[in-house]
Design a protein around this nucleic acid. Structure first.
Lengths: 343, 343
DNA sequence: GCACTTTGATTTACCGTTTAAGTGTGTTAA
DNA sequence: TTAACACACTTAAACGGTAAATCAAAGTGC
């Protein structure tokens, strides 16, 4: 028992496919199809449980009402939440989402974007992992609607929605210094990424403004593909002489989690032995031991804004209006890990 | 500059679309197309950056190489991880995933499943939120390939992959009792769900085996749409007279998180004032205060097994082989929240 | 020399939908 | 009396691909 198609309905009623198509798409009145015929069509469509084939529809219309979302890791809470908000918001506009994880792998990202284009998504939301922005330039050249989130390329004119990483980072570190820290280790991954650079810049700004000399020796980069292992090494080095940092700043949420785990394992007490702060807040940072001070990103806003811009671009393609660049403020969440505070 | 199609290549080379299609799909040799022609086609396809339109391909083939994944909440770490594993595994088989969150809303779930079918996904992986299984029956009737994960319907013969919720729950509670707890509150959501029932059954089994009388008064169900609020009420009631539980068992990961937050707010010490255990482990349960004892589900296995079964069913549709039912064991992760243990 | 096969394609139809253009009939206005 | 128009549709092409059937020319076997 195969699925019913327009043709089945048309044949059974002795009308043409066109008529059925019009009626089903509620253009019956506009196209002056008689009430009687319309009713017959609706009735039969209902009875046969007719559902339009969206592939055929998409092929014919050149529009699929679907959007691709490419992030580095959908199982990272930050992106999972973005995904959820985007999905919910998209549904309201009649769009569906296809998500993919690039695993910070530029080749995979390339393939995913191509795959989504092959499937004719109407637009893309991308958190690019690439240093090299060739595929973004390509999308731009093709005039394919897309919005970057979280990460973007300052030299390329594209839509993007991000947060003020530099300022957020600076606030965080100045607060940390205010709590008494003087030697602050900086631990990151993928330091080639713009956002990480900004966070690093904010860290340096803070040191400067607070009159602390920047020391490149306490800056470490761990390997995305072996966070657990490399972060342990980095931390062990930093907390011992000759570096002996009195605070650690983790540049992403998963680094913070991995860092705390390592510190626990090494029996380093937080914040007594070493204070800890992280960029990007997580739901459970207030029930960890100790609760972790972090900079929070406005996830909902990022996701909603990105989708809004994208849909606007998809639906009003006319003029290539100036690309929209949105930078949202972050929020400092002070908890116990950064030093002696009453919370 | 529109996208190049088969026809463009065919026209420019003066051959037919079919020939081009064959060559592009590497059937050139099989179909005995001359080396020369093949090379010309490949060369031009490359030069014009030809990429097959997957909508058209899907329409023609009746196969899209895509799979739908419907879970209750993609931003829940458990499902986000499932999604990630499924996505990675699917890629290896040449399939893409479309995920959706049903928000535990049966109507939305219904719509999502229909939407995915409209988009002609080749199969579905579903974690059903519905009590009423009509849509699952419908899928079964249509012989649509699908696999249920996490949750399933014992009365319906379908493929499913789940864990032994009852046994996992029992182990957990027996361990808790072994640590000295006697009055154990049970907090759940959506108690109509099979998995929750099983966890509840395991809880009761444990009590029975350990000679503790079951008391329905310390069983609470909170509202999925207001976990924070309703769980606070439930906890406050349970820890005070006349109930005065000495332990709390949270039936899902997010309940555990919300529960710990509430307990912290109320300044109840864990495990001194009340011990805590939860079903479903999370990455950070070992860095919370205190680290939380929980039952872990083998997420990777669940996801991989489900996908394996689904792809098998999609690709070897012949006989409706007996449906496959997989029940995986859980793993107890003992940490400090359940009482005095040396870890 | 004739039938038969192989080679290297082409033609045609189809997947399910949308849509521009056309058609036959009856009514109306000039 | 005839052109124009409204009505209620239908026809046919298009979207971009796949697949079965067909075909012409060359090669092979006897």
């Amino acid at each position: 028992m195969k699925k019913t198609s327009l043709k089945d309905i048309a044949d059974q009623l002795g009308v043409s496919k066109t008529t059925v198509s019009w009626v089903i798409n509620n253009k019956g009145d506009e196209k002056k199809i008689s009430r009687e015929t319309q009713e017959k069509i609706f009735e039969l469509a209902d009875r046969l449980n007719y559902k339009p084939n969206q592939l055929a529809r998409g092929l014919s219309l050149g529009k699929t009402n679907s959007i691709g979302l490419v992030v580095s890791d959908i199982s990272n809470v930050f992106y999972a939440k973005i995904a959820k908000v985007v999905e919910t918001a998209a549904e309201k506009h009649g769009y569906n989402i296809m998500y993919c994880s690039s695993d910070e792998n530029p080749d995979k990202e390339q393939r995913l974007i191509q795959m989504l284009k092959d499937r004719q998504v109407d637009g893309l939301i991308i958190s690019p992992s690439k240093v090299d922005s060739s595929q973004i330039l390509q999308l731009k050249k093709e005039n394919y609607p897309f919005v970057l989130i979280d990460r973007y390329f300052p030299r390329i004119d594209t839509n993007y929605v991000t947060v003020d990483n530099e300022m957020g980072s600076e606030d965080l570190i100045r607060h940390l210094i205010g709590q008494g820290s003087r030697r602050i280790g900086f631990i990151s991954v993928s330091s080639h990424l713009g956002v990480i650079k900004k966070r690093f810049a904010g860290y340096k700004n803070a040191l400067k403004k607070e009159g602390i000399k920047f020391d490149n020796k306490v800056v470490r980069e761990v390997d995305y593909n072996d966070v657990e292992g490399t972060i342990a090494t980095a931390i062990r080095e930093l907390i011992h002489p000759p570096y002996k940092v009195d605070a650690l700043y983790f540049a992403t949420n998963y680094l913070t989690v991995a860092g705390i785990k390592t510190l626990n394992k090494l029996q380093i007490r937080i914040p007594m032995d070493v204070a800890v702060v992280g960029f990007d807040d997580l739901d459970f940072f207030d029930i960890t031991y100790p609760p972790i001070t972090a900079v929070a990103q406005p996830i909902e806003e990022i996701a909603e804004k990105a989708l809004e811009i994208l849909i606007d671009e998809i639906e009003n393609r006319e003029a290539t209006t100036p690309k929209r660049k949105v930078v949202l403020p972050t929020q400092l969440r002070v908890r116990r890990s950064c030093g002696h505070v009453n919370i």
